[in-house]
Design a protein around this nucleic acid. Structure first.
Lengths: 226, 226
DNA sequence: CAAGTTTGACTGAATGTTCAGTCTAGAAAA
DNA sequence: TTTTCTAGACTGAACATTCAGTCAAACTTG
C-alpha cells in the first residue's frame, strides 16, 4: 500500500513493472549517494517497498546494481535513437548526441546526474559484468557517430575524414567533458562543453556552427514507455 | 619487527616515513581493490603494521584515503616537473606529459594503474576534500600545458593558437583516453592513445610528429625521495 | 654512569554498528 | 488450494574505531 511510483503507476505492481520501478529507484539512489554507498534499504525505501522484496526480485545486491546500470545504458541509448529519429540532417543528429551527453538539462528520464557515469566507469574497472556493459555502450556510440559521419559525407554535408577515427576522438572528448561537468569544474561548465564539442565537430567535419541557440531543448517527454 | 618496507628502509619508522609508507600502501591497495573496498586492515597488512597504527596516524579511514589521493597527485605532479626539466623543446615536454598520462609503462612510482584515476573521479563527485584535490590537479596541468604552448610559440615551434583553449582540449582528451585505457578498451589501447594524442597535438600546434619511437621510456627511477 | 622517569610508537583484544541476506508467515491471485 | 507476492523481524559477518596497555629509546638526576 501507499505505493507511490514517481511516474503515476499506482497498482501494486505487475512483476516487470515492479522490477523497473526498483531499477529506477536504484539509479536514483546511486546517483545521489554513489554506487558503493547504495544500500538495499535505500533502494527499497525509494521504491516504497520492503528490503526483502528487493532481494526477492534481484537475488543479490550486486545483481541489482549491475542491472540498474545496464538498464540505464539501454534507456539512454533508446532515448538517443528516438530523438535522433526526428532530426533531418546528420549535423543536427550529431548535435543532439553531444547535447544529450553534455547538457544535463536535455536529459533522458528524471534520473539525471552525469555523476552516474563516473561511478559506472570506476565500477567497470573491477566488475566484469559492468565492464561488459560499458564496453558495449562505447562501441554502440562510436558506431552511431561513425554512421552519422558517413551519412553526412554522402549527403555532402561533411568533408571526407576518417569516420572511425573521428568517432573515437569525439566520444573520448565527450567522456573527458563528462568528468569536468560532473565534477563542476569552474572552467568547463556544460554550456562551454557543448560549445567546445560542437566547435570541434564543425571544425573537423568542415561545416559552420555558431553557438547561441539551445540551452534547454524544451521539455519533450521523450519516450513514453518501453 | 619483521618490518619490511618496500624501499629498503628497515628501521621501526620515523614518523614521517611511517606516514608515507602507509600512504604508499594505501595507494597500492586502492589501485588493487578499489577505493570503496579498501579496508584499513588491508593497508595495515600491506604496510606490515597493525590496523590500530594506521588509525593512530590518520584519525579516520576517510582521512587516510583522502590523504593518499592528495599524496598521489602531488607525487605525480612532481615527477612530471622533474621529467620535463630534462627536456629541451616545448614539443618534447608536451610529449612527455602525454606519455606520462597515457602510457602506463612510463610510470611514476610502482603504483601503476590508471584505474586509480577512475576511483579518484568517482570519489570527487561526493567527497569535497577529494573534489578540491582533483580540481587543483586539473588546474595545475592545464596551466602547465598552456605555459608550454606559449613557450613553444615564442620559440617559433608552434603555430599561434589559443593556449588556454588548447590546454582544455588536450587535458580533456587525455582524461577521456585514460578511461579507455584503464578499462582496456579493445579499440583504444595505450599505444593508440598516445598516437592519437600526439597526432592531435601536432595537428593543432602545427608541427610534425611521427609515431614509432617510445613504447617505454627506459626505467629512469624518477625522483629518489621527497 | 646507573637508577628512575617520561614519551611516543605500537599492539591485541574488545566494542558497536551497519548491512546483506534469511526466515516465517500473511495476503492476494489464479 | 496452490502459487505468487510481500513484509517485518532477525541473524551473522565484516569492519572501523576504541582502549588499556607494552616496549624501548631518550631524557633526567644523583
Amino acid at each position: 500500500m501507499t505505493t507511490r511510483a514517481a511516474e503515476g503507476t499506482d497498482v501494486p505492481g505487475t512483476a516487470d513493472q515492479r522490477r523497473e520501478q526498483m531499477l529506477h529507484a536504484a539509479l536514483e539512489v546511486i546517483s545521489a549517494r554513489g554506487y558503493a554507498d547504495t544500500r538495499i534499504a535505500d533502494v527499497a525505501e525509494r521504491a516504497g517497498v520492503s528490503p526483502a522484496l528487493v532481494i526477492y526480485y534481484f537475488k543479490t545486491k550486486d545483481q541489482l546494481l549491475t542491472e540498474a546500470i545496464r538498464y540505464y545504458e539501454d534507456t539512454w541509448y533508446a532515448v538517443g535513437q528516438s530523438r535522433m529519429a526526428g532530426l533531418p540532417t546528420a549535423a543536427s543528429r550529431l548535435e543532439e548526441i553531444v547535447a544529450m551527453t553534455v547538457l544535463p538539462e536535455a536529459d533522458p528520464e528524471p534520473v539525471s546526474s552525469l555523476q552516474l557515469w563516473l561511478d559506472f566507469w570506476a565500477q567497470a574497472a573491477r566488475n566484469p559484468e559492468v565492464a561488459g556493459v560499458r564496453q558495449k555502450s562505447d562501441e554502440r556510440w562510436r558506431e552511431v557517430i561513425g554512421a552519422l559521419v558517413l551519412q553526412g559525407q554522402e549527403a555532402g554535408e561533411f568533408r571526407p575524414v576518417d569516420a572511425g577515427g573521428f568517432a573515437i576522438y569525439l566520444s573520448t572528448l565527450m567522456d573527458g567533458l563528462t568528468i569536468q561537468i560532473a565534477l563542476e569544474d569552474p572552467v568547463v561548465d556544460s554550456t562551454r562543453a557543448f560549445e567546445l564539442s560542437m566547435q570541434f565537430v564543425a571544425d573537423q567535419l568542415g561545416f559552420d556552427w555558431k553557438p547561441g541557440r539551445r540551452r534547454r531543448s524544451s521539455s519533450r517527454a521523450a519516450m513514453s514507455e518501453g
